[in-house]
Design a protein around this nucleic acid. Structure first.
Length: 297
DNA sequence: ACTACTCCCTGCCAGC
DNA sequence: TGCTGGCAGGGAGTAG
């Protein structure tokens, strides 16, 4: 599920229940995620307060009063579910109370946060490609997982000149280049396909062809930047896309899948006015690509 | 330095 | 109904 718009939707869902709250208890029910959770994972969270909730590419960053940052990635199938402790009983919290108040753990709830404000937050991830890691905030710019990431596509630093420079000399396809988190950070299979459709560019086109010889951006690079920005903004506004499962922290569904122009629309008519083409599915670097061979050149 | 490919893991669906 | 193969929103590691 989770590309940049989905992760941003999750961030916005977690912010009101995590910001300013303290980790009261942390359950590491399964530590064998993408990487093993450290043995002291829970201990390094418990008692500390969340001072900020951010996002870098597809990573969520939780700033802690301890001086550490909790880095979380949803992988392919990760999601968060939030529920609130029932109020009542005068509001005084007693240890162990949640046992009676939270729903039964769902299958694949690997980590559960119990917050001081009564919020319970479960990380569920069937495939366990997701990850959590604690790093010192002052070491964050040395963090290997973040170091090589390219620019944020919705940030000021991302523009046609930067994208052209990153693609200059690249022999690989535009699809592969845009999927490469070092070129631009946060796109995945869906939004790469959608952005290329918006820019009318073929996913098979050589990445280097969005730059002139000197590395200057051309019209294609500008169209691509616009396509990327627009599709991400539209998707965030729709709460992201929900394909096979729920994604928002409240259990609700994102709605952007209803606005897909090409993704998962093989054999359907191209929606571009006056195009009349048929959406095709091909496989590039082991993953499905959807595009219109008529209007995407 | 690039590029392409494999693998990690579980669930679901189409086809037999 | 049940099995099998293929596929799924990601990305690290390795081999050319």
């Amino acid at each position: 599920m989770p590309e940049l718009p989905e992760v941003e939707t999750v961030r916005r869902g977690l912010e009101p229940v995590m910001q300013g709250a303290r980790f009261e208890t942390v359950e590491a029910r399964r530590g064998d995620l993408r990487w093993p959770l450290p043995a002291d994972f829970a201990a390094r969270l418990e008692g500390h307060t969340v001072t900020g909730l951010g996002r870098r590419a597809k990573y969520l960053t939780v700033d802690l009063s301890s001086g550490e940052v909790l880095l979380m990635h949803l992988g392919m199938s990760g999601s968060f579910r939030v529920w609130q402790e029932k109020s009542g009983d005068g509001g005084a919290r007693k240890p162990g109370r949640y046992h009676h108040e939270r729903p039964q753990h769902a299958t694949h709830d690997h980590v559960v946060f119990h917050m001081s404000n009564g919020a319970h937050i479960a990380f569920n991830d069937p495939r366990r490609f997701g990850s959590m890691k604690l790093v010192a905030r002052d070491q964050l710019d040395q963090e290997p997982l973040l170091r090589a990431l390219g620019p944020e596509p919705l940030g000021n630093a991302f523009d046609a000149a930067m994208l052209a420079r990153a693609c200059r000399g690249k022999k690989t396809s535009l699809k592969a280049a845009l999927s490469d988190q070092r070129v631009v950070a946060g796109l995945g299979n869906i939004y790469v396909c959608e952005a290329l459709w918006r820019a009318r560019l073929s996913p098979k086109r050589r990445a280097s062809t969005i730059a002139a010889r000197a590395g200057e951006p051309n019209e294609r690079a500008r169209a691509l930047v616009d396509g990327i920005r627009d599709v991400l903004n539209d998707a965030i506004a729709a709460g992201g896309s929900s394909l096979r499962d729920h994604k928002r922290t409240d259990g609700g569904l994102g709605l952007f899948q209803h606005q897909f122009a090409v993704y998962d629309r093989e054999a359907m008519r191209c929606q571009r006015r006056g195009c009349g083409g048929t959406i095709k599915r091909i496989v590039q670097t082991g993953r499905s690509t959807f595009f219109c061979p008529v209007c995407q050149r």
